[in-house]
Design a protein around this nucleic acid. Structure first.
Lengths: 208, 208
DNA sequence: GTTTAATTCAAACGTTTGTTTAATTTTCCT
DNA sequence: AGGAAAATTAAACAAACGTTTGAATTAAAC
């Protein structure tokens, strides 16, 4: 699958991304999108074929470049624990920068109504897992990490903790008194990131 | 807020719960629900007033009894670490038994389109946090848990890990070769639960 | 048994939905 | 400049949406 999108197509996708994230795919009409993007309602069908195909284009547009990021990380000449920390930073920064598409994916992945093509995204996850496994093995061979680690369940803990915090934003905003966007983002960058790093580190090095 | 639901109303809610979880609130029509529940389409408006009010009734119906469960746990005469393990078991069993409503809540909590009344659910979360804080303090006073623990971020790690695993079910089904519902549920009850318990234990007792 | 209230139903309501049409405008190439 | 291709438009399409209506049926009360 390849995408060759012009400026106008990208503008439509950006508006659609925002609205899908806010109101869901079914909760957003083509008329909503065309109004915000200041285009005619026929343009969506003209450029993408249909509303669903536009969603597929959007997902591919936002996830296809993810592939290479973790592979590069493995090649860096730093300690395994440092790689893990960088990996967590990378995940949080990346997802925080692309909240909308991950919000959409989060819903669409568990939606039985549409069989939207997310093979490309699954492939990304598989690749990332392989990179993570390599880092863990490296750390084990150096005697830094302990032996029995369920690598498959590490991403759910890293991503799950972060997503859960994002999904319940209003609740944590009030609980932690984070009234501005800046305060909330800052808490993620400091306390939440620190918590996740601590959690994973504890899992990797402490014998229990 | 109180609810006095008759058998037919509950039957409607159960069908709605299933469909909302599968296809989303906006992705499910009243006609879908009435067909599956074998009732006339007018009955939803007749009993609940509107589709949105039905959602509110459903959320209240499913979450109002949650309140007391954790309070009892704190009172039990067992070690703090054992209480934490029981708490994790309780969360996983409870959510696993009520997958549908948590799937719905997960989406509705972050949906800007509807301002559905979830105050009752927020209150449940607050109460649970207080119970958890009491357990942690008890463990710290006994010298079992370490001092600086970010209690607020423990539920996101417990619940987030579990939800992330549930939300990406098709991916993990293939990755872990869990082809039947039984195999999947069994993996949750054994490996995933063990992983979460290990994670939290490592956070509570290991100095880093 | 009659009356009153609650329930159920088919039909219709006015909107909104995603998509298509056909005419028009703009862009690009020679 | 002229003609083919691409882009844009308003209008219309049938289908689906949530909700309401008013008559028919059942249940409850006296």
């Amino acid at each position: 699958m390849t995408l060759d999108l012009n400026d106008k197509q990208i503008r439509i996708l950006l508006v659609a991304e925002k609205l899908f994230a806010e109101k869901g795919f079914d909760g957003t009409s083509i008329r909503n999108i065309s109004k915000d993007a200041k285009i005619n309602i026929a343009m969506v069908s003209y450029y993408f074929g249909s509303k669903e195909k536009m969603l597929e284009s959007l997902i591919y547009f936002r996830t296809s470049d993810l592939k290479m990021q973790l592979e590069n990380l493995y090649q860096e000449a730093i300690e395994p624990m440092e790689k893990i920390n960088k990996l967590i930073d990378l995940y949080i920064t990346r997802i925080n920068k692309n909240k909308c598409i991950y919000q959409i994916l989060h819903f669409e992945l568990s939606n039985k109504k549409r069989a939207v093509d997310i093979k490309s995204f699954t492939e990304v996850k598989r690749q990332n897992l392989i990179s993570l496994e390599k880092i863990i093995t490296e750390g084990q061979e150096k005697g830094i990490f302990k032996k029995d680690i369920n690598v498959i369940l590490l991403p759910p803990t890293i991503l799950g903790t972060f997503f859960h915090f994002q999904m319940n934003r209003p609740y944590f905003e009030e609980l932690l008194d984070l009234r501005t966007d800046e305060a909330f983002d800052n808490y993620i960058k400091t306390d939440l990131t620190k918590h996740i790093k601590q959690t994973i580190k504890a899992l990797l090095i402490n014998e229990i």
